[in-house]
Design a protein around this nucleic acid. Structure first.
Length: 269
DNA sequence: GCCCAGGTGACGG
DNA sequence: CCGTCACATGGG
């Protein structure tokens, strides 16, 4: 068992931040994460989160995955006091980090994400994993490109993918055949990376930005979805000051997304 | 039944 | 280059 200090690390918020879809609450203060072909539990304690793995595994996998060696206070310090909304958002979202997730999983997940809400995305991904992924204990790894490339479109559709099934199948075939070498893209500049990702059908600017941000840790990427457009329209006169956050705007995007969705939920009640 | 969800691609102007 | 529209599916 290993322990991660709560200082700027909140599993509850990360689970609900819309960047990952396989970090699930089992009960209050207890979460299960399936990622990197592993499945681990995270349990909340007074001053830290307990992670059921060895010290070696924490150092080798999870420290990087959770981006634990980065000081997010530095990012938040870039927000001027006069930006009341973003100040509130960064305060409210303190503990969120940009995870280093698998590029392939992010590509498929965010292709699926279009015109779906977060619970629906979770359900789709889980179905895909249980039908095409390798078992890991009681759960399943994310399917490999080969596993999905061998599927037929109608069966994929039955995972509630709808019209996205063809996109996912094409992505799998490209990745499996090497037409698109996802691991080779790490050496590309942000613009070229996004451009390469957009060669996949169903991947436009927004999905490419999400894959860049969450799958390649390009924290300068700033995905604009309906929530972000709403925030920018309502609080920034249609123009968000990206220039203040050069090189890490994606971190601010994540704080804004989390805060905006929370506000929306409150408004509903 | 209606509207919306971490959009994209095809089409017409 | 722009705006508009169809696209499957599930939840509120």
């Amino acid at each position: 068992m290993e322990f991660i200090p709560k200082q700027d690390f909140d599993v509850k918020k990360i689970a609900d931040s819309g960047q990952c879809f396989r970090l699930n609450q089992l009960e209050a203060g207890r979460f299960q994460l399936t990622a990197l072909d592993r499945c681990v539990e995270l349990t909340e304690r007074a001053d830290d989160w307990a992670l059921d793995c060895s010290a070696a595994e924490l150092d080798k996998l999870w420290r990087g995955y959770f981006d634990l060696d980065t000081d997010y206070g530095t990012y938040r310090a870039a927000v001027p006091e006069k930006d009341v909304y973003l100040t509130a958002a960064t305060d409210f979202g303190r503990g969120i980090r940009i995870l280093r997730q698998d590029p392939w999983e992010m590509l498929v997940t965010f292709i699926i994400s279009q015109r779906k809400n977060i619970p629906a995305i979770r359900a789709c991904v889980e179905t895909l994993c249980s039908r095409y992924g390798e078992p890991i204990g009681t759960t399943y790894a994310f399917p490999t490109p080969a596993a999905l490339a061998g599927a037929d479109e109608e069966t994929l559709r039955a995972c509630a993918l709808g019209y996205r099934a063809g996109y996912v199948l094409a992505a799998a075939q490209m990745a499996d055949a090497g037409t698109l070498d996802l691991s080779a893209l790490v050496s590309l500049e942000d613009d070229q990376l996004a451009e390469s990702l957009m060669t996949v059908p169903g991947v436009g600017v927004k999905v490419a930005n999400c894959v860049s941000l969450f799958g390649y840790h390009r924290i300068a990427a700033f995905p604009r979805d309906v929530w972000m457009n709403r925030v920018i329209h309502e609080h920034y006169r249609g123009r968000f000051p990206l220039y203040r956050y050069k090189g890490f705007a994606g971190v601010m995007q994540q704080y804004l997304f989390y805060y905006a969705r929370y506000e929306g939920k409150i408004a509903e009640k």
